[in-house]
């Protein structure tokens, strides 16, 4: 086995072109477990975590741009990052995991319960994928194909994640349920992004996505349509709790049953909405 530490994206792409059976490693928190369990046997590792360009968070005129090797720790502490993504990152594993685990690793690992993934969906994130031959952008909603399967091709690197700056003007939030607090994989998670009309508090735009309720992280468009144009009063919130579970198609697995996932979906979305609106003092739904 070889281990190389390229300093540029191009150098990394050259290396994988020469050694197609090698694997990219970022933080290694997913990959090392797969290797130690014998589920992956790459003939070498190409470490992306030292490439400066991949570690930067920056803005241009239109987009907020996150390098794929930005860590969960960086995301959780960066004030420009919308809450739906920041909260997701801050609840990944433990401090030890967040020191090294990356956004790109969470995306490319494509677990249905990845805690940054619903946030990326509601932010309309786009991924820049690069190979020696070409460069293309894929939308988050088109990237995840099934558990652990993505649109990424052999020899391609996820270089950056970007979303429109206009997304920074809305409110966003995140909530997750696991078997205990801290150091826990989500049984279900949810992210929301919304804008409210100034005086009336009517929902003028709303995006809701959830993880672990389908083979891929999923946007709940039917629920969005039901809620658009409404005010989030007690009655509307109760409505969310009632119907959300029926709009998803979860499975039973080692972490939770289908019934449980349906039962908690609504409350989790309400929690995510609360975290979004409380920050700006616009939550009217009480503390339930």
């Amino acid at each position: 086995m070889y281990y190389c530490i390229p300093r540029t994206v191009n150098e990394a792409l050259q290396t994988v072109a020469e050694h197609p059976a090698g694997a990219f490693i970022a933080g290694g928190t997913d990959l090392m477990i797969l290797i130690s369990e014998g589920l992956k046997k790459p003939d070498g590792l190409i470490d992306l975590s030292r490439i400066e360009d991949l570690r930067a968070i920056r803005k241009d005129e239109k987009f907020l741009i996150l390098g794929s090797a930005v860590t969960m720790r960086q995301l959780a502490r960066h004030e420009d990052i919308p809450l739906c993504l920041r909260m997701g990152a801050s609840q990944v594993g433990s401090p030890q995991i967040r020191s090294v685990a990356t956004l790109g690793g969470n995306i490319c690992n494509a677990s249905p319960c990845g805690d940054t993934l619903p946030g990326l969906l509601v932010l309309d994130a786009e991924f820049l994928l690069k190979s020696l031959k070409e460069e293309r952008r894929v939308k988050a909603k088109d990237f995840f194909l099934s558990p652990k399967k993505t649109a990424l091709r052999t020899g391609e690197i996820l270089v950056e994640v970007r979303f429109p700056l206009i997304k920074l003007t809305g409110s966003s939030g995140f909530a997750k349920i696991g078997q205990r607090r801290g150091q826990v994989i989500s049984q279900v998670n949810a992210a929301v992004w919304c804008t409210l009309e100034k005086e009336s508090g009517v929902l003028s735009d709303l995006r809701i996505a959830a993880g672990s309720v389908a083979p891929v992280p999923l946007e709940l468009t039917a629920l969005e349509e039901k809620l658009l144009g409404k005010v989030l009063d007690d009655e509307t919130i109760e409505g969310v709790r009632q119907v959300a579970g029926e709009l998803i198609a979860p499975i039973t697995d080692v972490r939770a049953t289908e019934e449980y996932r349906r039962a908690v979906m609504g409350s989790l979305i309400v929690d995510a909405l609360r975290s979004a609106l409380e920050a700006s003092g616009r939550w009217k739904g009480g503390n339930k």
Binding site: Y3, I25, G28, T29, M32, L45, D47, S94, S99, V100
Partner: peptide, 10 residues
């Protein structure tokens, strides 16, 4: 803080 059990020595 890092978990050294998940960290390649490289």
């Amino acid at each position: 803080p890092v978990s050294s059990c998940l960290l390649p020595a490289a």
